[in-house]
Design a protein around this nucleic acid. Structure first.
Lengths: 304, 304
DNA sequence: CCACTGTTGAAAGTTACTTTCATGAAATCG
DNA sequence: CGATTTCATGAAAGTAACTTTCAACAGTGG
């Protein structure tokens, strides 16, 4: 009964492809082969019959159907028309830029810059498209109502966690970030009903984060997770799941685009929280800016 | 079989609907009823089965097929996917997004998300556009040739600094990040010719960063600065200036977009450095990934 | 009135899609 | 280490969708 949770079906009007690549790791091998074909060329897949696609993916029609259900569709025909729509929307051919892919060995810096910017920008846009405002709203509610907010993250996600902590702190919310598992665990043990624990994990498999969130949840805190993979282990200890939409697979991209995608979500939460009490947030920002003013040098221009 | 007007099938990739309504008068009454439905709501028609559509048009399936042929399609499935694609394309982006501007007080979360994503993505793109590949190249040269790299940054920029440190470190470059001014000063005092000091400051007026970079430079290190304002004080102690292009002015945007822009530049530098010695970089990444593997759950596949 | 023509839907035929089920592999348990 | 369960998978049997065939019919011009 652990399989197939909700994983919003029609709540992905903007990014079916993104949605699919997000739950790629949750799929079985045969389904994954189908998914890869679909993601690689949605328009082409839409034109194929279910038998064709099954053959191309070296599997059976039954598996294709199962794949459809896995990604939240009723059946193959529905997938087909959704794919056709999706393919039509992404009209622009991104010239020489290797979309979501690797950077060719001989690339000069100008090419590298263009490729990175393209992928980074796209991760941001696609993340925003698939972000569920309802879930965001609930998370904002939780943060606003929380006595205290704990934020966890390891490695690259740790920096994102620190960023959120920094931002919430600046608008006067009590927020903590713990780079260290042990400290985090002790803190989580002290959380209670009404408090919020937010975990960041790109892959969703970081055991430290899972452990700490589990602890927090068992104490009655509301748990939130930010990950790229909506069916990863970490989501099982989360009350609210926010997802990013970075589709980087190669080493060079590394945590590159995913990090920007995460930060975009952080921004949304931050602004969402700040918007709840604008005057207080504004005042807090001014006060904190004033606090570091003596560390600023005069120059032609700048702002707080 | 005296019909077959041979009306171009795929020669209307952009305007299938227009095409259909164009030859509407040439259709038989029953076919025309079908055509009207299709033209009135392409997306809806794409979702229907041939039987449904036939019933809705008060005719038989056979007539629907005839209609498909009349407008140049092979059959109903093809019409369906073409209609789906067509419908998707004519969904114009509403763009309630306040470009580069403030978020209105009454905005709901969906609007906030759209606005943030738009501004974030734009900051990334514009930064990449104005980034000087020549300067980047020189900075990459310096990093590659450096015995050691010091990275400084305060506040929000500190997180960016930490990110760069983290990335360089992971590909085996000796890099340090100092969140604390005093430690940073002592470190800078130990730099020498061939070493590199990189300072991050959005405003370019952070006195701490200026001071430390000045120290580093006086010791003979190559200094690099990443700022949004190319004429700010910090640029005076820099050998190489890299600029971001975030045009946020209001408090709410805060360090929001600028941070993403900075990270994009970090990515470019990182990939630039990694590209200089791909095999070494790849190997380092693999080794470091392996080091944290035991902290990952359900490697590859999910399942809690 | 009779051929002839074009339109139409019923029904038969074909293909695409979906479900069921047995198999075997892998994980889990005793 | 074997027994048991779970899971992934495709073959095959279903069902629904799509396509074709064909007879009926209405209009048209001889």
């Amino acid at each position: 009964m652990a399989k197939s949770p909700k994983v919003s079906a029609n709540s992905e009007p903007g990014g079916l492809i993104v949605h699919i690549s997000g739950l790629l790791p949750a799929l079985s091998p045969a389904e994954r082969r189908v998914a890869r074909l679909v993601v690689a060329n949605p328009g082409d897949a839409a034109r194929r019959t279910i038998t064709d696609l099954a053959i191309a993916a070296e599997t059976s029609e039954a598996t294709v159907i199962r794949f459809c259900r896995s990604v939240g569709m009723d059946g193959y025909p529905q997938l087909r028309i959704r794919l056709a729509a999706e393919a039509a929307r992404r009209v622009e051919p991104p010239d020489a830029r290797v979309v979501g892919g690797d950077i060719p060995p001989g690339a000069d810096l100008a090419q590298i810059i263009a490729t990175i910017a393209f992928n980074d920008a796209r991760a941001v846009e696609e993340t925003a498209e698939q972000l569920d405002p309802t879930v965001c709203e609930r998370v904002v509610d939780a943060i606003v109502g929380a006595g205290r907010v704990d934020i966890y993250g390891a490695g690259a996600s740790g920096l994102v966690a620190a960023d959120l902590q920094h931002k919430l702190h600046r608008i006067g919310r009590t927020a903590f970030y713990f780079p260290d598992l042990h400290t985090a665990l002790t803190s989580a043990a002290l959380l209670g009903r009404g408090d919020v624990a937010i975990g960041m994990s790109h892959t969703g498999t970081t055991s430290d984060v899972v452990e700490v969130l589990g602890q927090a949840r068992s104490r009655g805190a509301t748990t939130v997770v930010l990950t790229n993979f909506p069916r990863s282990p970490v989501t099982e200890v989360a009350d609210h799941v926010l997802t990013t939409a970075a589709r980087e697979t190669t080493y060079r991209s590394g945590a590159t685009a995913s990090r920007l995608a995460q930060l975009t979500v952080v921004d949304c939460l931050f602004v969402g929280v700040a918007a709840r009490n604008r005057s207080r947030a504004r005042k807090s920002l001014e006060v904190t800016a004033e606090a570091v003013r003596s560390h600023r040098l005069g120059s032609g221009r700048r702002r707080a």
